[in-house]
Structures are given as C-alpha cells and as structure tokens.
Design a protein around this nucleic acid. Structure first.
Lengths: 234, 234
DNA sequence: GCAAAAGTGTTAGAACTACACCCATGC
DNA sequence: GCATGGGTGTAGTTCTAACACTTTTGC
C-alpha cells in the first residue's frame, strides 16, 4: 500500500557537481575538467557524477571529487539543487551542487593535473557545459556572502595561514584591494584567530606569523547569536 | 553509448517539502498537515510530495503546496537538499526543502483549514516525521540570516505592510523585542521602502502608514555590492 | 645597505544605542 | 475625555575609514 504510493512516482537520476575555488597569491581560481563522456565530451565541466544507492549527498560529492581530481578530505558545502527539466539534454537529471575553497599550493598540483583537471582564473573561465556557469555564479555569490560573516568560513581555510595571505584571499574573493591596517584590525577583532609562534617566510624575508582558526571560540560566538560581520572595504 | 552511461546509475525518488512560516501580530507560526498516507499516517508533517517528470523543482514545490493547502502564488525559496540514505524508511528518497514566509491573515484561513493544515506557534511545534524537524531548524536559521540583510527578504513580504507590523515580524523572527525608534530609523535608512498615502487601521484608531518594498532600488543596491546589514538589537 | 614585505596608531566622521514624550482617532 | 497604538529627536558612545612610517631579513 504505502510502497505502491511511492512506486507511482518518477524515479530519476540525481547528479552532484563540485565547484572548487582555489586561492594562491595571484587571486581566485576555478578547477575544471575535460568531460570524458558524451554528450559534450571534451568540453570543460565541473567535477560531476551520479549519486549511488548507499551514499548520502555529502558522501557522493566527496567521492566524485576524489575520483576526478585525487583531492581528498576537502570540506564541501552544499550550494543548491538545480532542477530545470531540460538542464541535462540526455535525460531528466537533478543536480545538487557543492562548493569548496582550497589552497592551490597545499594540495598536490601534480595529482590534480594527472587527472586532467586545470585551474582557471575566475576572470577567465571557458565556456562550460549545461548550466555549470550558473552554478559557478551562484557559488561565487555564496562565497562572498559567507566571507562577509566569518573569516571566509573557517571550514574553507587551511589549518594555518598568515594575515597577508588571508588578505590576498579576501581581495581575490571581492575582487578589490583592502587597507592592511584596517583589515588586520577587523579580522582580529572578531577574536577567532589565534597567533602561533611560527613564521612563514615563503613570501618575504621578514616572514609573517601564522595564525590558526579558533573553532571553539567561533562556535561559542555563533551560539551566542553574535554576527561577526565583515564588510568588504576599500 | 552516452545513454547507457546514464542508465547504469541509480534512479530514485525526489521529494519536495515546504516549510511555511506565518506571521500575524502574535508571533511566528509554522504550517503543518496530518500526513494521510503510510508510513507515519496521521502524524504531523511538512507539506511534501514527489517531483513529477515535466516540472522543475521550483514548480513542483509550488504545486505540492497548493495541493495540500490551497495556498497559491507563494514565493518559495529553496533551502537545502536533504539526502541521508535512511531519511525515508520506505525507500531511498532525497528531499529538496523549500521555505516561505506569509501573512497568516492575508491568505484564506478557511481554505487552509479545509485542507487539514494547521498553524503552530514556532515555540510549540509537535513531533514531526522523518527529518522534518531538522528542516524546520535549518529554515529558521536561514530566515534569521536573511532578515538581517534585507527587510526580511522582500520576496517574503506582502505587497504592503506597516512599520509596526514589520517590527512585530522581526520580533517574532528573532524572538526578542526591539526599540521602535531605532527599528524605524534602521529599516528606513536601508532606503528600499516607499511610504504610501494609505493607512491601515486594523490595529489602532490612528492607523499606520502602509509601505511598499522598492524592488528596483533594492536590486541596484545589491548589484552595487551594498550590504544592507540589519543586526537584531535589544 | 637596500629592496621587499610585515607590522603598527591616530583622528575625524559616521553609525549605534538608549531613552520619553506628543499625536491622532474611535469610543 | 481618555485609552490605544503611531509617530518623532538627541546626546553619548562605539565603530569605521583614511592615512605613513618603522621593522626585519636575505641578498
């Protein structure tokens, strides 16, 4: 009886697509692959695949990303479910999009390259298949909004980072430049970053202190209803 | 060839669930129905149903809400796709949740009642089926966040409303009380509300001016990157 | 010793909070 | 004429934005 009710409805494919933003000291990038099956074989595409029977949406997104790029243990956040009837020309498919932000350097660039994936500047994205451009636009919008409320969404940050790096990242996300002193004051006044004793000398002789995100403090702050607003400023 | 690739993947049910928040001058409410099929028949549930072949997710959500409550032309916003493997005990189903905020009075209360739907205070929600409580929690969180950036998300507002009504709504959403003068100043300083000449005398003898949302100005504001932050204040 | 990036304070203007009284109307 | 909710202003404080020089180090 109950089962019948369920059976009378359409069963369809559920896809997952991953939008991976990367940052390095040159700006915001987007990871794409050449699609290796029809239709649109050979065109640039987000990392996508289909949901399997025994996995949740979150799990499937992680698996697909790993299969296609070798990337592992990436924090993926759900963006939106895309469900226009004609979005996939082969067969009715709904796609749940996920996005992430990663440090380009901190992940094995070779591995990613071996999988046929490439980084593109966010200002220079090639034509994408299906509705993938709309997905990227939505993800960028979301990333910006998220960055204005937390230090970029701590789940999206590497474990340790310097303030100049973080500033470059913000400048990439908002496509603007920021005042160093004001940036520091504001980001530190959120009081969720912890200074370590280590310095990173990658970008300068002097070196910049590495900071960690204080997850415990952050969660306290949020459960107290604090807002942690960070508006992009000139 | 391509079609085969598609066929080798699981096809499954896609459900939609609608979280309808209502406001009147007593606070925030939630609309629920008694589920009329197994499993969990007779328990309280969100308005849910399955995606049909020829309709987009957005369309299906609207149709389902209309079928179950008689409500029409409600602006539904997508919340999140819920996809845990065991979330529906009968069969693997993913559910895309939508939410809306409506004026309880402005919609036909009788019609809704005839459909077996009831309003519950947000402080007094009965036990819900499946993962519906998690959906409600997520929707409330989202509504609060949204309200802090726009006058509640203009799509969710009725066409005309008074400032005292809007204030009551905010107080319901944030479950707090606000200073009348500060509230007015802040909401008006966003400069997206337009005063009309009409007064609403429903709640007082003097009557309060009705305002409209200025969609054009709002879009300009957003595309200029303005942030329109509204922090809840004591 | 110099080039290159990291780090640090101050001040003027804007925004925020707290707070109390008059207004218009229907009865 | 009075009860009820609608509407208005100000002052003290906090936050924001604009701005320039010193420090450290590798070469």
């Amino acid at each position: 009886m109950s089962t019948e009710y369920y059976r009378n409805h359409a069963h369809l494919l559920v896809a997952l697509d991953c939008i991976i933003f990367g940052f390095d000291n040159e700006g915001l990038k987007l990871l794409l692959i050449k699609r290796d099956f029809e239709p649109e074989k050979g065109k640039w595409s987000l990392m996508g695949g289909f949901l399997g029977k025994g996995e949740s949406l979150d799990e499937a997104a992680g698996r697909i990303l790993n299969n296609l790029t070798g990337l592992q243990n990436i924090y993926l956040e759900q963006l939106h479910a895309f469900g226009e009837v004609e979005r996939d020309p082969v067969e009715r498919t709904i796609s749940v999009a996920y996005y992430a932000l990663i440090d380009v350097q901190a992940h094995d660039k070779e591995l990613v390259k071996q999988h046929g994936a490439s980084w593109f500047s966010i200002h220079d994205v090639p034509e994408l298949i299906f509705d993938h451009q709309a997905m990227v636009n939505a993800a960028l919008k979301r990333l910006r909004r998220k960055a204005s409320h937390q230090p970029v969404g701590f789940e999206l940050l590497p474990e340790k980072f310097t303030l100049p790096e973080l500033q470059k990242l913000y400048e990439g996300i908002y496509d603007t430049s920021l005042d160093k002193r004001n940036f520091r004051r504001r980001i530190l006044s959120m009081d969720v970053l912890v200074k370590t004793e280590e310095k990173l000398k990658k970008y300068s002789k002097k070196g910049a202190y590495l900071y960690k995100f204080d997850q415990k403090k952050y969660k306290e702050r949020v459960s107290n209803g604090d807002s942690l607003v960070f508006k992009p400023i000139k």
